[in-house]
Design a protein around this nucleic acid. Structure first.
Lengths: 325, 325
DNA sequence: ACCGTGTTTGGTAACGGTTACACCCTGGAG
DNA sequence: CTCCAGGGTGTAACCGTTACCAAACACGGT
């Protein structure tokens, strides 16, 4: 690769002039500029970004760090981020932490000392607070999907509202004994949705029976196992709410395997969409994942452009998708 | 962030010693080493990778560049890459080119002058040959899923075999008039699968009627539209093969909307999986995406470790998943 | 003729590391 | 008692840019 020195030599000017020709063309005489540009075209020279970053301490790039790139929600957040970044001239790096706190720390570290400018960050599920690396860093970031403190920008879904939409729908259908297939109590996200269920069950005066709530990991396997339990123990719920897409998928599989008709024997509703071709169509709420990614990135760009305002938190409202009756 | 100079000053040694302490501990006296390490721990110092890369022209990182991160096939290739990279101590960057050649070029450029060491590369669909940036670069890369030349490592699916499995299945079911919903003829991938269909139709002595093949983009919308055409034109195929997952999804939707029973009125088989919960279950072939990503990455690592052998091409066999009758 | 003023340009010190090279010890062999 | 080998350390050049500063020059006004 040609360097700025080569160009300077061939054009018969100093490196300083070449640098100026690139970064502030108006500051160099038209004749010189043309000569330099000719050489640049000829050699295909492009300034080395590494060297540039080292000097200017910025890299015109941001990263999105997500716990599981195959989770459709995360995927859409990424797509949302891409949509606003494309216009802004930033390069986007995606990193998959595979739900491992250790891998997450490594990734963050790595991004930092590669001079990433900013970060859209969906924490690993088990994180109860901001990783030290992040807290100590001076780079702007915005946290998506999990509340991890208030001294930085945060973009969240209104989990309570989401569960509320689902329970309200079931209640309006006259269901009374409604089970929950919930996420892990040890995580913020799981707790928040489970708690919403408990609160709302009382509020709607539905059957309030601890045996009706089953919690596990946010995985298809867990959904499958918990749904099986519910059926096996003859609790005969009239409806089931699954607190996440993977749980819903697992539950639906279980019911199908066990010959439980959905809907019919049982109503199933789920938090988050499960895919395009799910049959029968299942009533669910959708998070505005794309829009959340976009908004988070807008916040980030504002900070990158020097805006300093108090940390903001925004809540996106999930929307209900009713399956045709 | 602390720099190596700070550490050197605090430890009362030269920067050279600190650098050595990090990169070749055995070369510094035990006492000094300990003193340096103490300071490093205290300050949380980590060498700036940017500066390091600039000097040593390597960055211990590789990238996976894919055209569409929400395509399950690409996703699994990424997961496969991750699985082998984790062990090797390389950082993985993921970039989504969104099926845009222009964006792809930018991304590749960007990666290069960030001193990426190697590349696992799934080209944008419309690329007929290796992008210039890549061809001219000196960094090792391996191309996945599309044949773009023979002077580099390539990892492919046996598309012919995949179509063959599907047609063979249909033929064994006694189907004779089999339509194809194919990909764009202007792309290598589309052409390859469509061509396989044409060849095999003759080979199996099935109805060889150009009106039975409909091609379009690899999208859900195209699948939907093409399936509608097939139904509308009363060609009455006994079976349909969709040449890709998105086409299959679209087709299934169309049939469902039009009240065409699958199976029953029509048999549908598709190249690639469509999702976990598709109902009814559809007979399809799966590419060994994860394994392909892993293999590609293994090839890459070998080159990164200095192996120089002739460029290799490996073909992975798709496997048939029969829907329960 | 002289003096600002303004435009172009070149020299060069950073940025934060790595590494070739020279230097200084110390100790064992001759 | 010299000499040499070799371990441990520091100095400084270098990676490719950018940006500050000063130098060179032209030009219009007194």
């Amino acid at each position: 690769m040609a360097t700025i020195k080569d160009v300077a030599a061939q054009a018969g000017v100093s490196v300083a002039s070449v640098s100026r020709a690139i970064n502030d063309p108006s500051s160099v005489a038209p004749g010189t500029l043309e000569r330099i540009n000719a050489v640049i075209r000829k050699t295909g020279f492009a300034p080395n970004k590494i060297a540039r970053s080292l000097k200017v301490q910025t890299s015109k790039s941001v990263a999105v760090v997500v716990p599981d790139i195959s989770n459709p929600f995360h995927l859409k957040v990424i797509k949302g981020a891409e949509s606003v970044l494309a216009a802004a001239g930033y390069t986007l790096f995606i990193m998959d932490t595979e739900e491992s706190a250790e891998k997450e720390t490594r990734s963050l570290r790595d991004l930092f000392d590669r001079q990433i400018d900013g970060l859209v960050y969906i924490p690993v599920l088990t994180n109860q607070r901001l990783p030290r690396v992040l807290a100590e860093s001076r780079i702007p970031f915005v946290v998506v999907d999990r509340a991890l403190g208030t001294d930085h920008d945060t973009v969240l879904s209104n989990n309570f509202a989401g569960i509320s939409l689902l329970l309200n729908h079931l209640a309006s259908l006259g269901k009374h004994r409604i089970a929950l297939i919930g996420g892990p109590e040890g995580t913020h996200l799981g707790r928040e949705r489970n708690q919403a269920y408990r609160t709302l069950v009382r509020q709607y005066r539905l059957e309030d029976n601890p045996a009706l709530v089953r919690c596990g990991e946010f995985t298809i396997e867990a959904g499958l196992a918990l749904a099986r339990q519910l059926v096996a123990e003859q609790l005969a719920p009239e409806a089931v709410v699954a607190a996440a897409n993977f749980l819903g998928i697992g539950a639906l599989k279980a019911f199908r395997d066990l010959g439980v008709k959905v809907p019919g024997d049982l109503e199933l509703v789920v938090f988050d969409e499960m895919g395009d071709l799910v049959d029968p169509p299942i009533t669910h709420v959708r998070q505005q994942a794309f829009e959340m990614g976009a908004q988070a990135t807008r916040f980030l760009l504002e900070r990158l452009q020097g805006l300093t305002v108090a940390p903001r938190t925004v809540l996106f409202e999930p929307v209900l998708y009713l399956a045709p009756a």
